[in-house]
């Protein structure tokens, strides 16, 4: 048929083309972000103020970390509705560990992460072994987590004022001028990116999203790997909970509902397909930045909060439609 050398040459040429196409998606989302940024810079003199940009990054951090986890679940073709209230439960439990039980800082933080992993583990078990649809399994978990947060906290916020140094976790500036919460977000994104593209967990998530049955027949223990994937997603929920608690220096049991939708919106704006099989972490990061920038910019232009929601909704439609157009041309 073909000699090895021509095959290799063709392979390389095609690989470059493929790479460009993958990048196009991110360039598109990134261009969107730049346009939004440029628009608000002209619209408001305060927008480009470093304090304001810092605010945007801070606002991105918590939703962004949740969106990182959600990307894994969405890559399998599933959905995770429990990230919002799950995040809150992790905040509350971190409060219990640190403020109520007085455990050491490291233990409390790891405990918060562990609760997140536990939430993900239960989601995964329910999806894999009880065969609940992901929507239902995580909807149930969303309610359970919300309820437990209120019960455990006695519906009152838990303050970390007596826990020395906890607030520095998010508010401290290891790099002067840049809050740690933002650093944590970027570090988490880097880890998520490598996990998605370079480890079995990520590769199988995308395979399951592409064709679950073929993946199973290929000898991949799909049920077990789904548990792993949901647990990984849960870890990010836990991290979001800890960062949130640190930022507010308190655990607010009433918060959380609605965050899951913002996280999902960020993932979708980033070009990840809800049908599964296609996902990028860079896209999710850009998606989260777009969400936060938009909210911030509209607020700075003194647009009422009610209208901000409308604007965000429209942006989601535009972003996903642009992605569909792009995919249409590809096929």
């Amino acid at each position: 048929m073909t000699t090895p050398s021509t095959t290799t040459a063709r392979t390389e040429r095609a690989a470059t083309r493929f790479g460009n196409r993958q990048q196009l998606q991110q360039i598109l989302a990134f261009a969107g972000l730049v346009v939004i940024f440029a628009f608000f810079s002209f619209a408001s003199p305060y927008f480009l103020d470093w304090a304001n940009v810092k605010g945007i990054l801070l606002a991105t951090a918590v939703t962004g970390i949740m969106a990182l986890g959600a990307t894994f679940v969405i890559a399998t073709g599933g959905i995770d509705l429990s990230v919002g209230t799950g995040m809150t439960l992790c905040s509350v439990m971190t409060g219990v560990f640190l403020a109520n039980l007085g455990l050491p800082l490291v233990v409390g933080v790891l405990g918060g992460l562990a609760i997140g992993a536990l939430i993900g583990l239960l989601n995964g078990l329910n999806v894999s072994y009880l065969r609940l649809p992901p929507f239902i399994a995580t909807l149930a978990m969303m309610m359970v987590a919300q309820g437990l947060s209120l019960v455990i906290s006695g519906t009152k916020p838990i303050y970390f004022s007596d826990v020395g140094g906890f607030d520095q976790l998010a508010a401290g500036e290891l790099v002067p001028g840049l809050p740690n919460a933002v650093l944590i977000f970027f570090a988490a994104a880097a880890i998520a990116g490598v996990t998605l593209s370079k480890t079995l967990t990520g590769r199988y998530a995308l395979s399951i999203g592409s064709n679950e049955e073929a993946t199973a027949i290929s000898g991949v223990d799909v049920r077990r790997w789904k548990v792993v994937i949901y647990t990984v997603a849960g870890l990010f929920t836990g991290l979001a909970g800890v960062v949130m608690a640190s930022r507010l220096n308190s655990a607010q049991p009433g918060l959380g509902l609605g965050y899951e939708l913002e996280a999902i919106a960020a993932v979708v704006i980033g070009g990840t397909s809800l049908r599964g099989g296609k996902a990028t972490i860079l896209g999710t990061v850009i998606g989260a930045l777009i969400m936060a920038t938009l909210t911030n910019g509209l607020r700075i232009m003194s647009i009422p909060q009610e209208w901000q929601k409308v604007a965000v909704g429209i942006v989601i439609v535009l972003a996903v439609y642009a992605d569909i157009l792009r995919r249409g041309k590809e096929a």
């Binding site: 064709n211 073929a214 991949v220």
Partner: peptide
């Protein structure tokens, strides 16, 4: 239905069982 990851490339398909 049971054999291929249709949206993915030859490499990913070939690698799947031996990953």
């Amino acid at each position: 239905r049971y054999g291929l990851l249709l949206d993915q490339d030859v490499v990913r398909n070939v690698m799947l069982s031996a990953l």
